[in-house]
């Protein structure tokens, strides 16, 4: 039983870690701000729960487990809000998303990047 839990938590942590790094890579790789928000969301929506669940499986039974859940709930409640607000602020500040097959926007983005 404990071996099973160990394995399960190991798997969760591993997958979570991989996803986390994937999100990080996305954060660097994706072309414009709006798509990067998605990458950041990736690390936060699935990686965080997986990692925290993996952690919970390793912990002894106590109220601390619920605290981990609280942290998770807090992350899940705040992150989309923050992402949304940032996207909105970016729009407000005059940024426009880069849209597929839109050469002008791409050119604009490239010039602002240099």
């Amino acid at each position: 039983m404990s071996l099973l839990v160990e394995l399960l938590s190991g798997a969760l942590l591993l997958v979570g870690g991989v996803l986390c790094v994937t999100g990080g890579i996305g954060l660097v790789r994706l072309p414009d701000f709006f798509s990067r928000v998605h990458a950041s969301g990736l690390t936060e929506t699935l990686a965080a729960p997986l990692l925290l669940c993996g952690l919970m499986l390793r912990m002894d039974w106590s109220l601390d487990l619920l605290k981990v859940l609280l942290i998770l709930a807090f992350i899940l409640a705040t992150n989309p809000t923050a992402s949304h607000s940032m996207a909105k602020a970016a729009l407000h500040g005059g940024r426009r998303p880069l849209i597929a097959d839109d050469a002008d926007a791409a050119g604009e983005n490239a010039s602002s990047k240099s």
């Binding site: 998605h38 990736l42 929506t45 409640a77 996207a87 729009l91």
Partner: peptide
């Protein structure tokens, strides 16, 4: 709804 959309990676509510 807006937060659920944002929470789902790949879609983002901007306004």
């Amino acid at each position: 709804y807006a937060n659920s959309i944002t929470l789902t990676p790949g879609t983002l509510t901007t306004d």
